[in-house]
Design a binder for these strands. Sequence first.
DNA 1: TCTTGAACCTCTAGTCACTAGAGATTGTAA
DNA 2: TTACAATCTCTAGTGACTAGAGGTTCAAGA
Lengths: 138, 138
Amino acid sequence: MFSIGELSRRTKVKVPTIRYYEEMGLLAEAERTSGNQRRYDKAGLERLSFIRHARDLGFSIEAILSLIELQDHPDRSCETATDIAVSQLSDVREKIKRLKLLEKELTRISKGCDGLGVSEDCYVLASLSDHEHCENEH
Amino acid sequence: MFSIGELSRRTKVKVPTIRYYEEMGLLAEAERTSGNQRRYDKAGLERLSFIRHARDLGFSIEAILSLIELQDHPDRSCETATDIAVSQLSDVREKIKRLKLLEKELTRISKGCDGLGVSEDCYVLASLSDHEHCENEH
DNA sequence: TCTTGAACCTCTAGTCACTAGAGATTGTAA
DNA sequence: TTACAATCTCTAGTGACTAGAGGTTCAAGA
């Protein structure tokens, strides 16, 4: 059994975040010492690692709650879990697509001023004022 | 002169968001009718278009505030504006990089279950539990 | 001119996933 | 025993809005 600080060190999840996860129902309520401090075991560590990994992958708290429920009731869990992962994947792909368009335009905008002496009118500001300049939708 | 609703229609920025931008100092306080309703002109429309475009490109409210200040004091504005745009660009590139790693792993995870009859242990859940499976850092 | 109802006003509170701080208590090593 | 780091709970703040309550104003049709 170890303290919340130790759990934090082992999982790289900050102490207040652990308490927050408990409050949100992602972590079961921890056992307590006689002095009311939380104590964790291997199971707690594993669950928190799971949560952290899922958060790193961009799953929302809500999605993780669903995944945890599936873990606890493993009948037919795989399909639903895959659905959640696939939907997360399409979110990520959507974001990448959008960011690439932004990258393109920001590159264009940033290059406008560079090296040239022309700074009477700022190209960056002009570009931002006028969406018509853009080469693609965003 | 037109109303906040009309401004909203023309810029595709929602009415409460326009009021929020005013409160944040992005938009100058609008003129008012005798009945206290906001009225806008072409200048207001242009500034809001600028803000919307910048927000679409992922600039923070704070960054936009800086850009607006530059617009209002155009001496040497171009360098600073370019700096802001370049920094925004590198943010975007960072995000793309990260998301691509996530895409890779989510693809791997999502494929695990597909088509196979093996659903005793869910591959999605197992993958999320164990970071060691991952092929790259994220 | 009057009436109706859509649009407007301000204010407060909620969203997500934490993060920060205050003030009090507990655990542990010297 | 003592010192002090770590823990506890609670409230409030972050960014960029969004939602809702409850009240007022505008403008078009009768």
